[in-house]
Design a protein around this nucleic acid. Structure first.
Ligand SMILES: [Mn+2]
Ligand SMILES: [Mn+2]
Ligand SMILES: [Mn+2]
Ligand SMILES: [Mn+2]
Lengths: 158, 158
DNA sequence: CAAATAGTTTAGCCTCGGCTAACAAATATT
DNA sequence: AATATTTGTTAGCCGAGGCTAAACTATTTG
C-alpha cells in the first residue's frame, strides 16, 4: 500500500485555506497537466503554421524559428516530428502545409486560443499581457471552463 | 537577417480573426511560456510539500509520489534537485522541510494558486474542474491578470 | 554567371522528467 | 527476535526539446 495517508475529513474546519483534495483526485490534477504538456508544443506549432498560411499565404521554417525565438535546427527537427505525426506535409525549400488532421488541430487550437484571449481582454487585461497569458493558459483550460469564458465574453461586450 | 517577413500592417482589415502580432512580441509570448515551464514543476513540488506540512504536519516522499501519481524514484531524484536548489532539507526516512527560500516559494505559489482557483469557482466552474484547470493555469497567469482575477472574485461573492 | 546570402538539414551534445529494477534501511507484525 | 512490509535510494534507460557547428541547397545580387 502506498497510500498510508488517511483521507481528509469532510469539509469542516476551513481555517487555513482549502484542505488537500483526496489522493486520487489530487493525482488526476497533476496527470492532466502532464498530459497537456505533452501536446502543447505540437499544438502551438500547428496553430502557428495555420496562422502563417492564413495571414501570409505561406509558412516557412525560418518564419517559425523567428516567431518562436528558437533555432532553425530546432524547428527542422520538430517539422520532421509533425510530418511523422501526419500533421504537415513539407518539401524542402517550399512552404509547409497542413494535412487534413493538421487543419483540424489548427482550427481547434485557434478557436480555443481565441476564446481565452478574448475572455482575458473582456476581463480588462491589457492586450499584450492577455496575449502572453493566453499562450500558456490555452492548454490548461477544460471544455467546461472554456464554455463559461465564452459566455462571459459575449455578455460583457465592451 | 532571419526576419525576412514583412511586419504586419497596422490593424486595418479585421476580417478573419486577429492579425499576427509583430515578430518580437510574438516571440516573447512563446519565451514566457518556455520560462514558465522551467519552474513549473519545482513550484508544484514546493507547494505540495508546504501543503503537506501545513495539513499533515509532515511531508514524506511516498506521499508526494502517490499524490502526484509518479514513481518514488522520480520523487527521490527531484528531492535531490530541490535540495541542490536550496529549497528543501531532507534526512532519509524523515519528513522533508522547506528552507526559508522554500517557504517563500511555497507561500507565493499557494497564494497564486488560490487566487486562480477561487476565481474559477466565482466564474461558475465546478470545483473538481476548477482544481484541475487551476493546477495548470496558475503557472501562466501574469501579475496583472492575477490582480484582476482577485478583484473579480472579491466583487462576485456567492 | 559567379559570388554572396539566405534557408534548410544533419550530427552531436545537453538537461529535464519520466520509467523499471535492484538494493538498502527503517518500521511494523507476528 | 525474526520476518514482512514499507519507504527511500541508486543505476541505467528513454524521449522531448533545447542548443551549436557544419554542410548543403536555393535564391539573389553584382
Ligand atoms: Mn495557441
Ligand atoms: Mn500556446
Ligand atoms: Mn503549461
Ligand atoms: Mn501547478
Amino acid at each position: 500500500m502506498s497510500d498510508h495517508e488517511q483521507q481528509p475529513l469532510p469539509p469542516t474546519s476551513r481555517l487555513s485555506g482549502d484542505a488537500l483534495p483526496p489522493v486520487e483526485q489530487h493525482a488526476r490534477q497533476y496527470e492532466t497537466v502532464r498530459n497537456a504538456h505533452e501536446t502543447e508544443l505540437i499544438e502551438d506549432y500547428v496553430e502557428l503554421i495555420g496562422d502563417l498560411l492564413r495571414h501570409r499565404g505561406e509558412a516557412r521554417a525560418a518564419d517559425i524559428a523567428s516567431r518562436m525565438a528558437v533555432s532553425q535546427a530546432t524547428v527542422s527537427k520538430m517539422i520532421r516530428r509533425l510530418n511523422e505525426l501526419g500533421l504537415v506535409t513539407s518539401r524542402p525549400y517550399r512552404s509547409l502545409f497542413l494535412t487534413e488532421a493538421g487543419q483540424n488541430m489548427a482550427e481547434t487550437s485557434r478557436a480555443r486560443h481565441d476564446v481565452v484571449l478574448h475572455f482575458l481582454r473582456a476581463l480588462g487585461v491589457r492586450d499584450t499581457t492577455a496575449r502572453i497569458d493566453a499562450e500558456g493558459m490555452e492548454h490548461h483550460v477544460s471544455d467546461e471552463t472554456l464554455a463559461i469564458m465564452q459566455r462571459f465574453t459575449e455578455t460583457h461586450q465592451t
